[in-house]
Write a protein that binds this DNA or RNA. Structure first.
Lengths: 188, 188, 188, 188
DNA sequence: CATGAATGAGCGTTCATTCAT
DNA sequence: AATGAATGAACGCTCATTCAT
């Protein structure tokens, strides 16, 4: 998506319609012909980003096997493996988008929905792990754990977009897995 | 700072000079008399935010005592205690600011400096804990741990600004402390 | 005509080609295939409006009989009978059109022609009435009278389109006939 | 007012903000600094036009003396004397404005109010004339008469803006007075 | 004939910035 | 120090018009 490329470096307000159009090899009029408004482009970009990510995530979870800890690792890896997020442009765009989620209610709603979807992938894993005794946590600590893991992932995105050199290459997924083990009291 | 209030709800581009001025009870002309450009206001706001935070952080660390684990907890609590960040406006403004750090190099630089400063507060604690044997980690895992803890904190800011209901009340600091224990292999 | 419907509520500039096309169940491309330009559509709409009106007018005049005063009444009634203009859409479109006649010379020309045509229907009636002694006016007052009656009719259109409640139901034609009697000094 | 000049020849949509600004020797930004929106300029122009007219009308009515017929004539003359409206630009602008009254509800409201104000000047004259026996009309014919006279005046504005040559020089006021006499059955 | 994607000029509007007072 | 009028560039968006299919 052209908007992603432009937003990655210019942010939402800096991403002008004609800038996006030029990046995509179109004219500004045509962009509006297809999208109606700038916000719609943003929402569409989000949908693409989320769809691509969801697909990757589902594939990773299916490949993870039966063990809860492996599923947990797969969830983390799907977000953070390979250099604290594979696509720097997508990461930067996502961070810019986060700021828009604060401002524009429709974007905020879509953002919330996306995060909720992630939580709904993660929660059952932790839930099952807890019930099966693999994760030795209180029932009451499950929701906090879901939030904590998602926070860590989002935080890595922020750091990757703004302070890449702070993250030792390849450490994000490993560190997060280790944190999750502590959080969920997984024996290793 | 008036800009913070406006940025919290409107973002950087949505925060107009005259909007900021009105919030502060001034006129737009006078704001420019003092600041020269909008970016300078942003940089000034960051400086205030960072200074206030640094002061709080230093006070917390001083009060923490000698034990490394207490210092670590103090560091985490200083960022996340009391409902996943005390001041919702400051949090929202910080998240908006993050997006600007991606766009505007001077802002990005200030942001990096701020994060580095935090890292420089956190690193010696972990360093010492490792050397003293309280934290049973490899030397090579110290930098990743610093990044991971900072990522988690920043991630909680993001969630607090966009998805507050995902974070169970008061769970942020506790969960982060627990994660840090797992990451640094602290016996409890 | 579709343009009339759209112009009645949106005016000329507010009436977009694709809006007109949608109203007519066509596509914008096809509209241009037939008309070449938006102005041409307007001119075509005028022609239709005028043709329909002229036909109605001629029929009314033929049915009016020999007496000049009856012909005069028929002329007035053909414009104003039945609730100060029967078709509100046509009236509103006509008023919008009037404004375009001020701006676009070709439209102004067509408008003038239309008014002249009306004058040419009205003038001979008054002329004959004056010569035959039914209308006791000076020869010099004929042209002013033609203008005055046309003005009253156009004025009723304006009021009907903008201030309908100012006109007591059904009073327009009667009042105009009475005014014309005063103007032409017709004994009653 | 600059907008009036531009609207007189270009209509409302043709009157661009920068066109108006240029006519007034300003920049487009400054125009918006003072007016907020194009519609507000239009409303302001209406207010000026109406205020100027109301003042002229009141002066004319005060100078008219006690006789009802003189007051009636003064009312008519204030609108139409001197070449079917003195200021061609104001007339043309008014006609363009009429079309906007059909489209833009706030303009329509202001237009209605203006017309109602005129009606409220005219009605008491006719009312009194009827009660005093100077005007030999039914009570029920007063409202229709008010509407008819206003219609004629508005109609002359339309003709003046679009078909000036149809109106013999200086005939408008005289013809209207004569029509009013017929309408109100005033003996002469 | 008919479609609808595509163009591009131009619109109203916003706003950081300047400057006379 | 302080005001707020003034500037001007840039934005999102609209739409008459064109044209490949």
């Amino acid at each position: 998506m052209a908007m992603m490329k432009v937003m990655a470096t210019q942010g939402y307000d800096g991403a002008t319609i004609s800038g996006i159009a030029k990046e995509a090899g179109l004219t500004s009029g045509l962009v509006h012909y297809h999208f109606g408004s700038k916000q719609e482009i943003l929402l569409h970009m989000m949908a693409l980003l989320i769809a691509a990510h969801t697909q990757r995530l589902n594939a990773a979870l299916e490949a993870a096997g039966e063990r809860r800890v492996d599923q947990l690792d797969a969830f983390i890896n799907a977000h953070l493996a390979i250099g604290a997020t594979a696509d720097p442009e997508a990461t930067a765009a996502w961070v810019s988008l986060t700021a828009e989620a604060v401002r524009q209610p429709p974007v905020g709603q879509a953002w919330s929905t996306a995060l909720d979807t992630l939580a709904e992938h993660l929660r059952p894993i932790i839930d099952a792990g807890q019930q099966e005794g693999a994760f030795k946590v209180d029932k009451d600590d499950i929701e906090p754990a879901v939030a904590a893991i998602l926070a860590t992932i989002q935080g890595y995105f922020v750091l990757a977009a703004t302070n890449r050199e702070l993250i030792p290459r390849g450490s994000a997924a490993a560190a997060t897995r280790q944190m999750a083990r502590g959080l969920l009291r997984i024996q290793t």
